[in-house]
Design a protein around this nucleic acid. Sequence first.
DNA 1: GCCTAGATTTCGATA
DNA 2: TATCGAAGTCTAGGC
Lengths: 231, 231
Amino acid sequence: MRVVIASCSVDYSGRLNAHLPLATRLLMVKADGSVLVHSDGGSYKPLNWMSPPCRLDVAEPSEEEAATGVDAVWTVQHTKNDDRLVVRIHEVLADHSVDLGVDPGLVKDGVEAHLQKLLAEQIDILGPGHQLMRREYPTAIGPVDILARDEDGTAVAVEIKRRGEIDGVEQLTRYLELLNRDPLLAPVRGVFAAQEIKPQARVLAGDRGIRCVVLDYDAMRGIDDVDSRLF
Amino acid sequence: MRVVIASCSVDYSGRLNAHLPLATRLLMVKADGSVLVHSDGGSYKPLNWMSPPCRLDVAEPSEEEAATGVDAVWTVQHTKNDDRLVVRIHEVLADHSVDLGVDPGLVKDGVEAHLQKLLAEQIDILGPGHQLMRREYPTAIGPVDILARDEDGTAVAVEIKRRGEIDGVEQLTRYLELLNRDPLLAPVRGVFAAQEIKPQARVLAGDRGIRCVVLDYDAMRGIDDVDSRLF
DNA sequence: GCCTAGATTTCGATA
DNA sequence: TATCGAAGTCTAGGC
């Protein structure tokens, strides 16, 4: 890993063209040759970058470039396509190299999969008398998150999202269309379950006869913990 | 901007919980207090981070922590929610601070908007005799990219994407449903236009009677240049 | 300010 | 290897 702080201008060409005027920025060169151009703000996304696999070449500036104060020209060329990043370095304020080694990596916990597991275990959140048929019920266009039966024995297809938005309702609609063609299952009701459901999604779901259920993740996790302690 | 290279362990808690074991990493502290934890690989996305607005506090380690080699504890607390990043610093290899000032920002060119403009100018790409009605034709659920008439005078609603995927077809379907309720427009045909159309999107479009058109951006831009030179 | 759609999205799982 | 869905997505544009 090499970190350079320098005044520079940057040009990217590839899927689009983009230009950064001359200013002082942080340049990060990773071991795989990828380059990140960061300013002192924004978010974690760099102003400009080149993803691996790519190759960094450092060259002398042309006379023309040198006349405008360019000290070096970095060309970062993607190995598999025409994406190219050109960094024209004017003044270098700092230049550090360090060997970081391979990172042991991130350990994550608690996403949509967890919601699905918890809801499968606590299926009566959908209403008393509900029975789980199975998780990840396979269909031709992909698996339905949860398939259950309500107290009357009617099949219920559940789509789970962390944030319920309009495309989640569309997805569930496609599943319902398909499932309702199966005479062994039909009629199948739809339930859209999420920690948070956007108003537009709620309206669309209502319009299609799909029930919305807001999931309380902390409460579900709490019950899960209590259950776990019983064993 | 402050750049620290140090061996550290990192814990994030918020929308999920995540942990990074002890390793040497690059820590970037931006002027707004946001923190990025980078390893020597991956892409531009940090291993872990805290977005602004947030607050960084540096504290002495507890006795317990000190015994395991912790030299300092950084706590980065988001200002508006419970998200928190805790960085336990073991050994500092480098620590640089520099004032970058405000970045003049990125100048972009050539995205979906450009495709829309070009297609509006070269509407006969849809077929000879097509006439542009208008770009960004407003509907209750949002603007349709392009509304045109074909050689027979039939209305055509065009949805434009850089990459045509299934949700683009869904979007166009919703527009068509709405537009076909308007007696002044109906019947309205649908055209899904993109630089690249994914197979699943193509199948769904076919199933709904929507025509797919692949756009050659370079060719369209070339014609545009030629046109420009004529004036 | 909230909400929606796009992104040089990135990233991971799966067929 | 392509494809598809999720992301602590982020970000810009409307309303």
